[in-house]
Design a protein around this nucleic acid. Structure first.
Length: 455
DNA sequence: TCTGGGGTCCTAGGACCC
DNA sequence: TCTGGGGTCCTAGGACCC
């Protein structure tokens, strides 16, 4: 908690619906619901007109349809438009300070202390009012709510208090006056489960929370959450505004209109999901070591299975293959409602190998034992490649070619990692040697494929 | 018409190493 | 031999947020 109110939180009001109403004047003043429109759709954003009828985020679209009157617009969403509008707003925030932390398309924190502003309540109120007006102007009609306080949590709570089109400055020293009357459920991080636990011991407001000991809270909700709540009740929050947070995982998932049972179909869905993950991985120039399969049954029970590889991967074929193997270990009786594929442990390769001398590197052992199908060959001690081998009984071969190391099995697939002894390891990529785009060789020859890849 | 899709962080248990 | 304790990594699941 700072001695001045210098953290700003901005939350755009009913953002997706507001963009739709901006672009389609006929929707202005009318209930608009943006979200999944199919049988298993869910509401992403409801305009305030639709909220008046009880439509809410995360509600099933069917329920929203039942609640809203005829004439309500149900829209699927135009994410490119939202993203463009979001960028306009974020640029305005960066005019206030270099320290802008974007939390989502419609939400951000700004560290005003880094911007040289008048931090009196009068000055901050004027700043916020001006910001809101500029956002409305620059976006062509989208409005936002602003909270300014001495910490992120208080600023976020402040932006909620007067929504929509809100403006609240919580002066330093008055935090507890604002906080204590609020229901605990309004604290960020207190959801249904924590809310129920707190309620079961009579804690309903932040003032109630304030009376509990640290020991009690930790016993109730665990170490991290308990200490977090204890501090929150005292407005104790020192988290800095952090611009440019690196992503820690990338995933894609899909819920099917009807449950899937056919294994071939499931496998082709996994490839489609892996392609989507890889497109984003490659756009960000990153790769990850852990591949996770998410699996939701017909009855909504949800499982995850993951595998961590010795090296980062960013190639769709490899990721889909791992996901397929993970899927094979799951009982699919009754049908599959959702599949997801994710990659985490992004780009955290070991830097220690980077400066190894070539002469220190051991020789490749050409007589290596042939691994079983599906084995992942463990790290070579040199800053070299890792090979995933897909066919049993083949001799392992490996060679240094051009600027990368390649290992391969005699048939089927070749796995390559692009790097030199002093180049950071690139992602592992697996290619089919019988892919006509990659190798005209017949019979399939991984060396030929590898040479083409490394050229 | 029950329950999307993209994330983050935490917990707990087991393996493994020292 | 019955016996630890700490640290790290991995896996699975859950809570929460927008």
């Amino acid at each position: 908690m700072r001695s001045e109110a210098s953290v700003l939180h901005l939350d755009l009001d009913a953002f997706f619906a507001a963009v739709e109403q901006r672009d389609k004047p006929s929707l202005r003043g009318k209930p608009v619901v943006v979200g999944g429109t199919g049988g298993r759709g869910v509401v992403a954003t409801a305009s305030y007109e639709a909220r008046a009828y009880g439509a809410r985020s995360a509600m099933s679209s069917g329920e929203a349809r039942r609640r809203c009157p005829p004439g309500t617009a149900f829209l699927g969403g135009r994410f490119a438009a939202y993203s463009l509008t979001s960028r306009v707003v974020m640029d305005l925030l960066r005019e206030l300070s270099p320290l802008v932390e974007q939390v989502s398309v419609d939400e951000a924190y700004v560290d005003l202390a880094a911007g040289g502003h008048d931090l009196t309540t009068t000055g901050l109120t004027a700043l916020a009012a001006d910001l809101k007006a500029r956002i409305h102007e620059a976006t062509g009609g989208v409005r936002g709510s602003v909270g300014i306080a001495s910490s992120k949590t208080l600023a976020k709570i402040g932006s909620e208090l007067d929504k929509p089109d809100g403006l609240r400055v919580i002066a330093a020293g008055t935090e507890l006056d604002v906080l204590h009357p609020l229901p605990v459920r309004s604290l960020p991080g207190v959801g249904p489960a924590t809310g129920d636990r707190l309620s079961s011991v009579g804690v309903r407001t932040v003032a109630d929370l304030h009376e509990r000991s640290l020991t009690d809270l930790v016993a109730l909700v665990g170490q991290a959450h308990g200490t977090g709540l204890f501090r929150l009740a005292r407005a104790d929050d020192e988290r800095p505004v952090v611009p440019d947070r690196e992503a820690k995982s990338v995933s894609a998932e899909r819920t099917y209109a009807t449950d899937l049972t056919d294994l071939g179909r499931l496998e082709s869905e996994l490839r489609w999901l892996a392609d989507r993950v890889v497109a984003r991985l490659q756009k960000d120039g990153t790769a990850g070591r852990t591949v996770t399969l998410k699996f939701r049954r017909y009855d909504f029970t949800t499982l995850t299975r993951s595998q961590t590889l010795p090296q980062p991967v960013d190639d769709a074929r490899t990721i889909a293959e791992i996901a397929r193997r993970l899927l094979a270990g799951i009982d699919r009786t009754g049908g599959v409602r959702l599949l997801g594929v994710g990659v985490s442990g992004l780009a955290d390769y070991v830097q220690g190998d980077l400066f190894a001398e070539d002469d220190d590197l051991p020789d490749v052992d050409p007589g290596a034992e042939a691994p079983a199908e599906g084995d992942v060959v463990p790290d070579d001690p040199r800053p070299g490649p890792t090979a995933t081998l897909w066919h049993p009984g083949q001799d392992v071969e490996h060679a240094q070619m051009g600027r990368g190391w390649v290992w391969g099995s005699g048939l089927g697939r070749v796995t390559v990692r692009f790097e030199g002894p002093r180049t950071p390891p690139g992602p592992v990529r697996t290619y089919a040697t019988d892919d006509p785009d990659l190798s005209p060789a017949d019979p399939p020859d991984w060396r030929t494929t590898a040479e083409r890849l490394l050229r």
